[in-house]
């Protein structure tokens, strides 16, 4: 796993309040990385630090192995970002907004048409941005970020204020960018279902502290199994005798917690006793469920999924 951005022990305080506490993250190249946390968790501050809008008090940030403090200008040839709400010059057209950035950075104007096309607002290129809908403004924000084909996009709540159709389009757009064009996307969002549908990796922060980072699939799979068998009473008895806590569910189903090794033993025993197994599935948790549990101060899930204390 090649890292494109690495944060090591990054901390930031505003006056007396520490907003980001010893945050360490590794963003793999070509990944779609979801950055989650409740309001005020320190997401936007972390993103602002990442793109150099504010400086960290402590810690180091490496972009492709180079310190961003020393390589700030060259960094921005490879990074596109969208921080806070979309920013734009309201009295200029979409084309003029993007052309302004190209002119001040001495970059080709042909790129403006490309990003307008890619983000689907080419048809409105001559319309003043103040007359744009929220969805169009979000797309223009993405177009700003995508100028000059960056390797990584850092997007802070890019679907904020969009209707379900807009969210769906942006999501597919980001997935396409990541999977088909090999871009790395680091995206924060409050919409957990949306992150669950698109991210490969996630990081969860709360009160400035990292509480989980890693592959999304690892955190979603729990060590809890749902079983449906013909001889349910016999199996429940067997599991209870083995010291497992079994919960009865509807439709003759039941669930219990067991690690994968214990599950293999149980499976073998059921096969020996000729139990007819109709269903045996690990229970998949939703990201929302995990998020709500993890952001509680006292939660048992932290230990279960190996989270940082």
């Amino acid at each position: 796993m090649e890292a494109i951005i690495t944060l090591s022990n990054v901390s930031k305080s505003f006056q007396l309040q520490q907003v980001v506490k010893n945050l360490s993250l590794t963003i793999p190249k070509g990944s779609l990385y979801g950055f989650l946390g409740p309001n005020g968790a320190g997401k936007t501050t972390t993103m602002r630090i990442l793109v150099g809008l504010i400086e960290a008090d402590e810690g180091e940030i490496l972009f492709k192995g180079k310190n961003i403090k020393k390589w700030r200008k060259s960094l921005f040839n490879h990074v596109g970002c969208f921080i806070d709400s979309p920013s734009y010059y309201p009295n200029l057209t979409a084309y003029e907004n993007l052309a302004y950035i190209q002119k001040i950075t001495d970059k080709p104007l042909a790129e403006v048409d490309r990003v307008l096309n890619v983000t689907g607002i080419y048809y409105a290129k001559d319309k003043k941005v103040k007359n744009f809908s929220m969805g169009m403004k979000q797309r223009l924000g993405l177009a700003f970020a995508m100028l000059n084909d960056p390797d990584i996009l850092i997007l802070d709540e890019p679907t904020n204020g969009l209707d379900p159709e807009g969210i769906h389009e942006i999501r597919n757009f980001l997935i396409n960018l990541c999977k088909n064009e090999g871009k790395t996307i680091f995206v924060s969002s409050h919409n957990l279902a949306e992150i669950e549908m698109m991210a490969d990796y996630i990081a969860l922060i709360n009160q400035g502290k990292l509480i989980y980072d890693g592959k999304l699939e690892d955190v979603l799979i729990s060590e809890e199994y749902i079983v449906k068998v013909k001889q349910s009473e016999e199996v429940i008895q067997m599991l209870t005798n083995s010291g497992l806590d079994v919960t009865r569910l509807k439709d003759n189903k039941f669930s219990f917690k067991a690690d994968q090794y214990k599950m293999a033993v149980i499976n073998k025993k059921m096969a020996e006793k000729n139990i007819d197994v109709y269903e045996l599935t690990p229970r998949k948790r939703t990201l929302e469920e995990i998020f709500l549990n993890l952001t509680k101060t006292d939660n048992p899930l932290k230990k279960e999924v190996g989270l940082y204390e």
Partner: peptide, 14 residues
Amino acid sequence: KNGTWSILLTKPIS
């Protein structure tokens, strides 16, 4: 007012 510093300062311009 327009929040455009964040665009200008994250582009390759000093």
